[in-house]
């Protein structure tokens, strides 16, 4: 049984059919990536898994439990969190408060503090800015904060929506290194990216989404070598 599996998911926004029978799965300990062009439905898929968007049909299974109809705020408590597209940090709150909110559903105060310090170790830039309002951080720093905040709930699976979007290339490398490290510590990662090259270089397996459908699925190395993928997503 997969740790996370999506089975035949159909999602609509009014008349727009955004996901058309999408299935995918992630095994414990994997980094799985989902690549696809703008508008393919990647964000919609992550939002549906997290319970922010409701599916018309199909289901989402997490650790043997059907979470298709579980409200978003309860899914976090089950051990599945997300760093959303566009980061969505709480701009008028400090870095520390953002991290504290990431642990909103936890009661173990001293453990929360330990995890927060671990995040500061993983992202030293956040430590320097811990009292700063998160709205004043750079894009890359906000992205780090969004990822750290998602980890503060101690998820077993984390969904990352385009962590490289709008970020300086140097920081992108850092962030990908952090993702590998997070995974090494035992968190399963489902990574959505337009930066297919980077994503496929760290993932074990990958899916290609086109206009709401999974059109390819394979080991990441094979996808990276696939001529169609190279032409469409890796610039030839």
């Amino acid at each position: 049984m997969s740790q996370l599996s999506v089975e035949n998911l159909d999602v609509y926004y009014g008349a727009v059919h955004a996901l058309k029978g999408v299935s995918l799965h992630a095994e414990a300990g994997e980094i799985v990536t989902l690549i696809g062009a703008n508008g393919a439905g990647k964000t919609t898929l992550l939002r549906t898994i997290s319970g922010l968007v409701s599916a018309k049909s199909g289901r989402v299974m997490f650790e043997g439990r059907d979470i298709t109809r579980v409200p978003a705020h309860e899914i976090v408590a089950l051990g599945l969190s997300q760093s959303p597209e566009g980061r969505m940090v709480f701009a008028n709150l400090s870095v520390e408060d953002n991290l504290e909110l990431g642990a909103y559903r936890r009661k173990d105060k001293s453990e929360i503090r330990k995890d927060r310090d671990a995040m500061f170790q993983l992202f030293p830039r956040l430590l320097e800015r811990r009292k700063q309002l998160s709205g004043t951080l750079s894009g890359g720093e906000q992205q780090m904060l969004a990822i750290a905040r998602a980890l503060m709930s101690r998820p077993r699976v984390v969904l990352l929506d385009e962590p490289s979007l709008g970020i300086a290339p140097l920081l992108v490398r850092d962030i990908f290194r952090n993702i590998v490290e997070i995974n090494r510590r035992g968190v399963t990662v489902l990574l959505v990216e337009q930066n297919a090259h980077m994503a496929l270089s760290i993932a074990r397996r990958g899916y290609v989404l086109e206009t709401g459908k999974v059109v390819l699925e394979d080991e990441a190395a094979k996808l990276a070598a696939n001529p169609e993928v190279r032409a469409a997503y890796l610039g030839g």
Binding site: S50, G51, L52, P71, A72, H73, E74, V76, A77, S81, Q82, P84, M88, V89, F90, A91, N92, L93, D97, E100, L101, G102, Y104, R105, R149, A150, S153
Partner: peptide, 24 residues
Amino acid sequence: TRTGKAMQAVSHNHMAASLMGISV
């Protein structure tokens, strides 16, 4: 307070607040 900060989070962005596990 924890609830007060959750209130600030909700007033900033409902979606992000739910992703923290806050019941909007």
